[in-house]
Amino acid sequence: MWQFFHKLGSPKWFYGIATRLMPWLLVVGAALLLAGVVWGLAFAPKDYLQGNSYRIIFIHVPTAFLAQSVYIMMAVAAVVTLVWRMKLADVFVKAVAPVGLVLTFLALFTGAVWGKPTWGTWWIWDARLTSMLILLFLYGGVIALDRAINDEKSAARAVSVLVLVGVVNIPIIKYSVEWWNTLHQPATFKLTEKPSMPAEMWVPLLLSVLGLYFIFGWLACLRMQTEIIFREQRTRWVKDLVMAGRP
């Protein structure tokens, strides 16, 4: 068990595993995402209330879902960085934060565009959209702090503290934004929560969520590899790896 843990912390070991894993992640992810999206766009039945605009759900929900879980993953990695000082954990946080930012932006954008035919305006200060916006700010803060600190080790630990403070705040933010929303505009039409969604709708949704997860895994591996090469360029194995590509 401990040996496994140590191995997991070794950048070289991870690099090899990631190289072997990545083609699978990409193929499976792309296939699932494509299947979910095509099914959702062309074959799923029309929603009786919102018409065809609901088809945005098949990308809105996956991006929103993943944007939130990426932050939770970052928080877990932050704990690992602070407690066990594992190199890979902080490589993960650094590599994945921009991906989280892009996903959050996509969730916000699709939510806003969906709002136009549903609510009649591009933006409503709805509880979900507002807490997504705050999540975007949190990601922005993490990236800005990481960029501002030159020393790698302190940057990793400072970012970990910030991510943890943020993750403690996320439930509080969510709860307070929901409370604020009911205070100002009682019982708006909810975007995603349906009492009963037919299987022709939720199966493609599930497929695209899973597909985006795999794509995220691929992106995380790729970006972590980049970061590992950059950090470990003084080691023998990275030198061999880099020079092996060229004569």
Binding site: L145, V165, G166, N169, I173, W179, W180
Partner: peptide, 19 residues
């Protein structure tokens, strides 16, 4: 940078204060 990091964390207090 300080403002960027902290303002999102201030939002719940602001909401409940004004609410």
């Amino acid at each position: 940078l300080l403002s960027l990091l902290i303002i999102p964390l201030y939002i719940p207090v602001l909401i409940f204060g004004t609410g």
